[in-house]
Design a protein around this nucleic acid. Structure first.
Lengths: 343, 343
DNA sequence: TTGTACGCGTTATCAT
DNA sequence: ATGATAACGCGTACAA
């Protein structure tokens, strides 16, 4: 595997390595002729600079990383796209990295920082309950965007967050269902062990019930299955199926994510029932699919574009020393579509 | 940004760097006591080895890369998951890399090989029409899995392919529609410029028509829009909408991908028509969503699991020198669901 | 404008 | 079992 290096190119061109380096990196101090000659040879040889060596040598690179937990959720896909657009505007490079639900995003971040000389990190999704000690090792500024609850152990001024108020938005949705005449509202939420987003949204649910003098019934709360992929259609499908078969009465079903709501939709259909005639169905996230599926799904829309803008804007302001770490909360928007109705 | 290096750890432990290195990499020649002592310090300091330096020094790494073109298609997500499982079985590491539709996957591959010392590459999706010259620079074995047509300029024994026969499977689907009594079959295919998968599937369509003595009508062929994201729901939605508004008559609509079929479904619904009562609808890919949406979508199922297994198996056999490059074709399977009916 | 030489953090090789 | 040291491929300060 005789890989061609910068030295080989230099030799072939009869110049020094630094000259080749200058040609590659568009340095000013170089004769245009030598430069084009070198580029010619580079192309012929199919020479590609070794990124490892570059990263090793470079003191700082204009790159920021985006770490996504849970690649299956299309909500994050949209988020990443918006973020990427913003990063490109700033003439920075983005590296995208997925971590599985059972992986440690902080470990991944720590590695990436060393490897790529990152300027900053954006975490998307997941829970992020890490010890302060370990977090202390992460020296670059980072922003938690759409991340679940953060253990309050960590002082809030070491990082930023950008998200919607999950309790409030969840409240908004449940309250809307109640105002629509629903009293028996079932909910599919995160698994019991999950202390994050699922818990917050459940809190919103409880508050809405309480504010409307409806008593809370544990039987209506259905955690997603640990045995299936979290937030997946299959998970929503199975849980809904069990709910229906349990015979538990309800008129509305509030599902913690749109993807799961799609599964719920199918389970209801297969049970011979209709949405919204027999059951109203509400989701959360505002993914694209919710607008295309029939019936279209009533949901809480997270302002993806704005959140992405804010995330990047904030990160760069912090990098420039213009701002301190902050905790931005964006208002969600309830989008009423075909899957819910008044009763 | 004083990052702690292996030297610092060595100094702290009062040992040499090589000893630390041995501790990190589970080398045999090391005293268990020193090893645990070193690991202790490493944890305390939150030391993380620099991957760039490792990759630079290492002669070979047990990693293979998967390059995906078009991250929005859930079909690839499943494929990647299956592939990852297989790679892990072999005790190799996988690096996943997304490239946009307008990026050059070969450039990305060339970079990655140098940077990560890859053993092999798997390309997923896209077209892959590269010059033989440029392809020659890619020294590691690679496999094209579910990739569109490959320019026949390149000699077939420099790479492997694993895929279904797009012409045949497309034929199968269209023939099924014809056997179900459909004669006016509209099709949504790739944009005109795209000489890949779209073209092959169109060929299958034409052949099926011909075999059944149905004349081909250009008006029924609707390319996806270049202005929208390829293979997206929105694209399927818009194209179907135009098709319906054009007044062109048809009884079945065959869409080149399930994701676009979802968009088509919505467009038909909004036009006040029903699937399958007014129009039969068929997709291609066999994504999970097709089983959950109502009506469930008749489609061509690609045997993801088997293809993933074969892809990895083949790659490792080639690496071991046990096999030459091959071109495996898997049979697709038509899955008849609710979205089509006999007329 | 161009070339030489050093160092980035790590692993591999060789002594010890 | 352990330590010193030479690479790995590149960017860059400095000399020419």
């Amino acid at each position: 595997m005789e890989q061609v290096t910068i030295k080989d190119i230099a030799k072939m061109c009869g110049v020094g390595v630094s000259t080749v380096s200058r040609a590659i990196n568009d340095h000013p101090d170089i004769n245009p002729e030598t430069k084009s000659m070198i580029n010619q040879v580079i192309r012929e040889q199919g020479y590609v600079p070794n990124n490892s060596a570059r990263n090793l040598k470079r003191t700082e690179a204009k790159t920021i990383a985006v770490l996504v937990k849970g690649m299956n959720n299309p909500f994050f896909t949209s988020m990443v796209k918006s973020i990427e657009k913003e990063i490109k505007k700033k003439k920075y490079a983005m590296v995208l990295h997925h971590v599985e639900f059972d992986e440690d995003e902080l470990d991944a971040a720590l590695e990436l920082v060393k490897e790529k000389r990152l300027k900053g990190i954006i975490f998307l999704g997941g829970n992020f309950n890490h010890s302060e000690e370990k977090l202390g090792h992460l020296k670059v500024p980072f922003i938690l965007s759409t991340v679940g609850c953060i253990s309050d152990v960590i002082s809030k001024n070491t990082y930023s967050t950008v998200s919607v108020d999950d309790v409030k938005e969840s409240y908004r949705m449940v309250d809307y269902l109640i105002q629509s005449g629903h009293k028996k509202i079932a909910m599919i939420t995160a698994s019991v062990g999950d202390g994050s987003i699922g818990k917050l949204r459940l809190t919103g649910y409880k508050q809405a019930l309480q504010a409307n003098q409806i008593s809370f019934r544990q039987e209506l709360i259905r955690p997603m299955k640990d045995t299936l992929e979290p937030y997946s259609m299959e998970n929503g499908y199975q849980v809904t199926k069990e709910l229906l078969e349990s015979g538990e009465e309800f008129t509305a079903l509030y599902v913690i994510s749109d993807m799961m709501a799609v599964g719920a939709l199918r389970a209801i259909h297969e049970a011979g029932k209709k949405v919204p005639e027999d059951y109203s169905l509400a989701g959360y996230d505002g993914i694209e699919l919710g607008r295309y599926i029939t019936p279209t799904i009533t949901t809480i829309n997270q302002p993806i574009e704005e959140m992405a803008k804010e995330t990047i804007g904030l990160l760069f302001d912090i990098l420039a020393g213009k701002k301190q770490h902050q905790h931005k909360v964006f208002p969600g928007k309830i989008v009423v579509r075909e899957s819910t109705k008044k009763i």
